[in-house]
């Protein structure tokens, strides 16, 4: 941990940034929650870290770029991941880019999400902050789409689930997140769905069906009866 500095703190984890084995690294530490029983806290944390690592690697197997994992330490509750130095979040990118480029990018995002869902991976927290655009020629320049690579991050709530329900919720969560942060959301979301359709040919119908259902009722299933 020497040489690492705290960059962010959330409800679940602290993020540190530094260099590990010569590679720029982010450490995600799921700190101890003292209000929970120790045994429960340990097993929950371990389970979530395992799910996160598994989803990250599984994304790679279906061809989606995710950070390189460098260490998973259950004892210190830390996951070490590659830090993309020359990157920008989709959130910032949307605010500084013209609509034409965004529409082109949206199809790409949709394709990536379609691939992910086709591989039964549910991200669980799709927002514009959890999608990174990484410059592939190591420059801090984010204008040319050809130079950028789409990377999904933060699989802290991810799980593996083949059923359409969770995929529908995943899309709904993204739509809500985009609508609440970006003015152009309404314009770009259809393109995302279009891209999704293209890369998830044999499953998108069922997912869209569920997505409409989720939209009508909200994220949580009714537990009445």
């Amino acid at each position: 941990m020497e040489g690492f500095k705290l960059i962010k703190q959330g409800a679940e984890a602290k993020l540190y940034q530094g260099v590990y084995l010569g590679v720029p690294t982010i450490i995600k530490e799921r700190f101890v929650k003292t209000y929970r029983h120790k045994h429960l806290d340990d097993s929950l944390t371990k389970e979530r870290m395992r799910a996160e690592a598994k989803a990250l690697v599984r994304c790679k197997t279906v061809g989606i770029a995710t950070p390189m994992l460098l260490n998973v330490d259950f004892h210190t509750r830390m996951i070490f991941m590659e830090h993309f130095v020359h990157s920008i979040t989709l959130k910032d990118f949307i605010e500084q880019t013209c609509l034409d480029t965004l529409l082109e990018l949206s199809v790409l995002i949709g394709k990536t999400l379609g691939k992910m869902h086709a591989g039964s991976i549910i991200h669980g927290d799709l927002t514009s902050s959890n999608i990174l655009l990484v410059n592939t020629s190591n420059k801090d320049c984010f204008e040319d789409l050809q130079e950028l690579k789409l990377v999904l991050i933060d699989f802290g709530l991810a799980h593996i689930e083949p059923c359409a329900e969770d995929k529908g919720v995943d899309l709904y969560v993204l739509e809500r997140a985009l609508l609440s942060t970006h003015a152009v959301a309404e314009a770009i979301f259809p393109s995302i769905l279009e891209g999704y359709k293209q890369s998830y040919k044999n499953g998108f119908r069922e997912v869209f069906c569920k997505y409409e259902e989720v939209r009508a009722r909200g994220r949580k299933r009714t537990m009445v009866g």
């Binding site: 690592a53 690697v57 790679k60 061809g63 390189m68 994992l69 998973v72 070490f80 590659e82």
Partner: peptide, 16 residues
């Protein structure tokens, strides 16, 4: 679509 070193290192790191 993924660099070989990335694939390999991630698998080693996530091994239990």
């Amino acid at each position: 679509s993924v660099a070989l070193l990335d694939s390999v290192v991630s698998r080693i790191a996530s091994k239990e």
